[in-house]
Design a protein around this nucleic acid. Sequence first.
DNA 1: AGTACCACCTGACGGC
DNA 2: TGCCGTCAGGTGGTAC
Length: 262
Amino acid sequence: MPELPDVERFRTAINSNALHKKIKSVQVSEKRVLDNVSEPKLKRALKGAAFEKTRRHGKYLFLQLDKGGFLVLHFGMTGDIRYYKSDSDRPEHTRMLIEFANGYRLAWINMRLLGRINVAREPAAFVRARDLGPDAMQIGREQFREAFSGRNGKLKPALMNQSILAGLGNIYTDEILFQSGWHPESLLKRFKPAELDAIHGVMKRVLRVTVRRLGRIEEFPRTYLLPHRDKEGACPRCGSAIRRIKVGQRTSYFCPQCQKKR
DNA sequence: AGTACCACCTGACGGC
DNA sequence: TGCCGTCAGGTGGTAC
């Protein structure tokens, strides 16, 4: 599930529940998810500290510690977060469990073990080291045009390329392409600056709307593709059968009537 | 620079 | 019922 709007939901949940609470203990039940940090080092960094505030860049969530430094969470393909009280409510596939002094717990859930846990001194340095592009919610029109013009290759893989633009994944990119009326295999070099500007505008709108709905697809507007993004789906605009193809190894859903190839 | 393929993982689903 | 292939909202490495 985790693309930008989902990570933004996790951030909101942590902001409203898990800030300014002293961390009593940390358990990591799957060491494989630890990326640049060992378990002892992670425990040293977190124990006795509290989360002060949160930031997000692309699909990465940064939790600032009052002792200094950041816990950096990435969720992979399957990830979630839950704040709860009773030990019996521990979610399945909890890979890291943070227990607070108030008795509540924060579970980092990661079924497929494709997510990663890091620590960082500064988000900016981490973002640079990972070669992440500008965040999709922050990027301005000029910067967007700059990032995508003069490139070769197909539109969809470029939008999903985290070093060009950070935050979009497979399904939100499908939505943005649907709403801008472009076929996923359109060639980037055929786009005029004004058309890139239009895609930027659509992207901003889609992110604004879906973040506001906390990434809950059932609550998306009826004119959105995502609720119909399955084999039997019909285009919410024209009723045509939604088509499914592979673009850059990833499954893409699109409306052959509404989305033109450039 | 762009693309293809593989690897990393678990679980759900459909076909036989 | 059980086994098997396929697929899933991500990323990193390698090779061409």
